[in-house]
Each structure stands twice: as structure tokens, then as C-alpha cells.
């Protein structure tokens, strides 16, 4: 696939009413930029502190995986980046979370815009109870004012482009109007990625995107994510060591709400700097 990397979007994209299609400034080294940065991020669910002083710099255009035992705060951290945690009501956060240099916790930030630019894929594929076509267009219709006047042909092009990108087009092009929930799990998960693409997101959050899939599906989705690398920034939670190892550029190891180690994947798996990292990677963690 021939793809040109998307330069970072203007920071004002997150603000209320910011035009989505404003020209973006030409960024220098795409892979070198920082997509997500957290500073002294602490998070509480009621009285329970789930994150402790998390300082992370997730680089743009690469795949960063997060590993760690259950309950270590990986998913919580992930859910902080598109502010979906807030819905719970009893969540309290201190510190800063920046996406492309803009603090997404700032008061003038519109949550809807954050979620538009920071897409999320879940453990269990969750296509909407609509047709395949309408699933792909769902976010587009909500966020793009142009979608209302768009002709059928233009919308078809959006659908085709997104489905081709996730390598689903050939399999479903003849049944775009059939229900999405009838697809196989692998196809559903690809569709869940495809429906984020028309929004031109900057960051894609993946919460164990393959854990509900069989080995073939896992491989297909991993390959897909690997192919989209460069164009999008991926932050991926996984329980699967092998997956983190083969399908990510950098790796973050978390334990009990703290970041223990963040390094290049080949380094962290070959020469971990911390003993706990080594223990966990080798399955010795109890």
C-alpha cells in the first residue's frame, strides 16, 4: 500500500468549533514527534488510586504496546487518553495528558473532539447494530458537516476507502447493507478499525484488540495494524507477550499503577533494565 504519512494536526483541533479540515502545519520528522505525553498523571476511582505519577512520551507514527499484569492500570491509562473514563463520574484525575502538545484535560477542550481524534478499538469487537456501510459512516456522519450534503457516490467512496484500508473491502463489497453483527469476529474487529478512519484520527487506542480472535484473526489484525503504522499512532494494551514483541516498536511495562519501564521493544525483551520487567516477561511474576 502506498501511503503518505499524515502530519500532525493543528493543536486547535480539539477546541469547540474548530474546523476539522483546517490545513495542517508541515511537521518535520513524523516518527520523531510526540503523539501522547502524560506528566505526573494520577487517577483515582473513588478512593482507589489506579495510576501513580505516570510520565510517558508516546512517539508519533509507531506502535507502542503496554504490558503488565491484570489490574496494573494499562486500560485505565488507555481510557484516559480519550477521556472515556470520565463517564463513570467517580473518577478523579490530576496531572496532564497531552495529545500533540495540547492538554486534553484543559477546561476549554470539547470531549467530543478528543474522541474524534483519538479513536478506540475494544477487546470485544463492538460493531453497531447497523449495516456494514452505516457502521463505517457513523462517526463520519456525526462529525463531518459535509456528510449531510454528500452524495451517495461520495459516501460510497468514503466507505470503500476505509474498508480497503483495513483489507475488508473484497470480502464485504457485495453485502454492504447487510448487518455488521453477522460478520466474523475478525471482520468485525477490522470494521471497528475502519469506522474510525473516515474521522482521520491522530491516535488509535487498542485495548487488547486480538484477545477475542482466533490465531488467524489475530495475525490478520496484527498485520493490518502493522501496515497502518506510520500513518497513525497506535497505543495498544496486550496480555500477549509474543504479540507485544512481534507487533510493536516500543513497549511500556506497568505494574500496580506505575510505569516501570518504557523502551524499544527489542531492548525491553532482550535486555530489560528492571528486574520486575524481566520477571514478568519471562513469566516469573507472581
Amino acid at each position: 500500500m502506498d501511503r503518505t504519512p499524515t502530519p500532525p494536526r493543528e493543536a486547535s483541533d480539539f477546541e469547540v468549533g474548530a474546523a476539522a479540515d483546517r490545513p495542517v502545519e508541515a511537521a518535520g520528522d513524523v516518527a520523531g514527534g510526540v503523539a501522547i505525553e502524560t506528566r505526573q498523571l494520577n487517577l483515582w476511582y473513588g478512593d482507589f488510586q489506579a495510576l501513580f505519577d505516570v510520565d510517558l512520551r508516546i512517539k508519533q507514527g509507531i506502535i507502542t504496546s503496554m504490558i503488565g499484569p491484570s489490574g496494573c492500570g494499562k486500560t485505565t491509562l488507555l481510557r484516559t487518553v480519550n477521556r472515556i473514563n470520565e463517564r463513570l463520574g467517580y473518577v478523579r484525575t490530576t496531572g496532564a495528558v497531552e495529545v500533540l502538545g495540547r492538554d486534553i484535560l484543559a477546561p476549554e477542550v470539547e470531549v467530543v473532539q478528543v474522541r474524534r481524534h483519538v479513536g478506540m478499538v475494544f477487546q470485544r469487537p463492538n460493531p453497531l447494530p447497523l449495516s456494514i456501510r452505516e457502521n463505517v459512516l457513523f462517526g463520519y456522519r456525526i462529525h463531518e458537516p459535509a456528510a449531510r450534503q454528500a452524495s451517495r457516490g461520495e459516501l460510497d467512496a468514503v466507505v470503500e476507502d476505509a474498508l480497503k484500508t483495513v483489507l475488508l473491502w473484497d470480502g464485504v463489497k457485495d453485502r454492504l447493507n447487510s448487518r455488521a453483527t453477522a460478520l466474523s469476529l475478525e471482520e468485525q474487529q477490522k470494521l471497528c478499525i475502519a469506522r474510525l478512519l473516515p474521522l482521520k484520527p491522530t491516535v488509535l487506542l487498542m485495548d487488547e484488540p486480538c484477545s477475542a480472535l482466533d490465531p488467524a484473526g489475530t495475525e490478520a489484525v496484527e498485520e493490518l495494524i502493522w501496515g497502518l503504522r506510520g500513518e497513525y499512532t497506535f497505543l495498544m494494551v496486550t496480555h500477549n507477550m509474543a504479540q507485544a514483541r512481534r507487533a510493536s516498536d516500543e513497549c511500556v511495562f506497568m505494574l500496580l499503577g506505575r510505569v516501570i519501564e518504557h523502551a524499544r521493544t527489542d531492548e525491553i525483551f532482550v535486555t530489560p533494565r528492571h528486574e520486575t520487567t524481566a520477571d514478568y516477561i519471562e513469566g516469573r511474576y507472581a
Partner: peptide, 25 residues
Amino acid sequence: HAFREACWNMGATRWQTIWRVVLPN
């Protein structure tokens, strides 16, 4: 509930979620 979560995660408001997904179903 997963349908609502999916909508919210794409930046749909509550009402958009209700109108497009919850009510039709």
C-alpha cells in the same frame, strides 16, 4: 451497553447515541 460505549468512543453525544442506535433497537 457495548453499543452505547462504541458510539461514545466515536465522539457521539448522548442524544446522537439514543437517536441513531438505542431507539431504533
